[in-house]
Design a protein around this nucleic acid. Sequence first.
DNA 1: GAGAGATCGTGGGCTGTGGC
DNA 2: GCCACAGCCCACGATCTCTC
Length: 243
Amino acid sequence: MKTEKILPETLLQLMLNVFGAAPDFVYKSGIQPFLMEIGGREFYIYVKNLSSAYFKTRPDTTRAQLPVREDFEEIKLSAIPFVFLGYDSVNDVIVCWNYHTAKQRLNERKSVSFYSRSYFQEEVVSGEFLRKELKNGDTPVLFKRKDIITFFRSIDSFFGKPTGSEDVKDIIVDGKINNITDKTLLQKLKPLLNTDTPHTLEAIKVTQQYYGDLPQMKFRDWANLVKNVQFSVSNEEMKCDHK
DNA sequence: GAGAGATCGTGGGCTGTGGC
DNA sequence: GCCACAGCCCACGATCTCTC
């Protein structure tokens, strides 16, 4: 795989260019890694160029390597998720490995490798998330850089919650969202929809802005998505019901 | 068919090198 | 000196092949 070296600052800028479209995105500090917030959650993001693994018989194997760094110790001890991303500049594709695993592996060795395949990266199309299984059990998710907002909106659906929580169903299938489970978005939609006179069009607009550009989603899909929103009954309401 | 050894496939991680 | 990438060797499990 022919790689073009991209400076850490440029990689940061490439990410910010897309994240900037999300109204709830906040860049906080750092270059690589950098700290950011989206959907009310903070993340440490570390983006590195994907390059060949230089296996003589397997030129298709690509990888990104994690070095040892002092600031990783702080991140490792922090409660904030650490998301390690590999960037393929040729295909404008991002590979994300399980962020729970990536955090655990920080500073474990002088150089920790995370693998992908160049043909996986070439396979990615706009609006879709490719989840591939490697022989080492890793299940990296590949997507176009422009889809990074959508990816972060549903990152738990790909890798689950950190601490022994129940599995979360994938909400993006074939580039489409079938169900809104994101609490932040549900909070925004509640005043628009949970009323005698629902503001459906406004709700569709809010949802589109929240998830970003999804080419597979037609207006009818967005409308159905909003129509099917269900607001769970709060604990307090539950208690009242049982009185 | 079963077991042993050889070979292959895949990933881990170290060192070297060059740019800043 | 630090960092990122290039290049390499090594470990190990899976699979294949040979022999009995």
